[in-house]
Write a protein that binds this DNA or RNA. Sequence first.
DNA 1: GCCCAGGGATGCG
DNA 2: CGCATCCATGGG
Length: 276
Amino acid sequence: MKYVVKSDRIEIEKCDEFDIRQILECGQIFRFYENNGEYSCCSGDRFAKIIESDDKIIILTSDPRYFENFFDLKTDYAAIKKQLSADAFMAKAISYGKGIRILNREPLDCIIEFIISANNNITRIRKIVERLCEGAGTKKSGYYAFPTIDQLADRSLEFYNSLGAGYRGAYLFDTVQRLKLIDISILREMPTQDLKKFLISLKGIGEKVANCILLFGFHRMDTFPVDTWIAKVYADHFGGELTSRVQITRFFEEKYGTLSGIAQQYLFYYKRECLE
DNA sequence: GCCCAGGGATGCG
DNA sequence: CGCATCCATGGG
């Protein structure tokens, strides 16, 4: 993929490996906006707007180097897709979501958003996250930054219960209090299994949510989150003899190895959009 | 009224 | 361990 990083933008030559709609709507991030086909998104306190010209995709932002990493532009997704396309069903899923990339998200944003995501639907998750940012985050020009851990820890249980998140409000309150006690940046250095154990020790984080955080917040590509949609994919297209989600996770992680994360996104996006 | 949503916590065997 | 049950909320 060809792109150039300038002082106020990234310019990408149009290609099969970057589709902003697919990247933002495939379920790895909940804070993004769409207006007449034009997308924008937030990460931490940063903001980017993505526009198109005839032959280019342009990412407008005050921090292009940050979003170069955020959109994972250095990774060769054409090579990954070629490697995964051996399987017929996966080839169909890839052909449908060929412009997906795995984001490098902020760990804190990811932890909070995916606690909210549990047993919830995407439309409502997005509304709750937005209320959280408006209620605790710093107002910027045209958007609210995702709250810092200090801003989150300053909020009361009543605040979290007022977001419409149901029983997850108490999980959020408990977890931000615990995260305030540690240095979140050291989590990036931890081995995946240790990090996973730590994440699951937080309220509201189980096997599946932990895997989503590992994948989207820490770029651990060898993890394969299994949710209700992936369980359907497994039942309909991969045999279906295994029953528990832990078993299905292990099945896919052994099958796809270090490409598990992106493989999961192709399958998830295809199942959710096509209903095959 | 029912079922479902990118499930987790808890308790019980 | 595995399994059942309960859990707030909103949309279809």
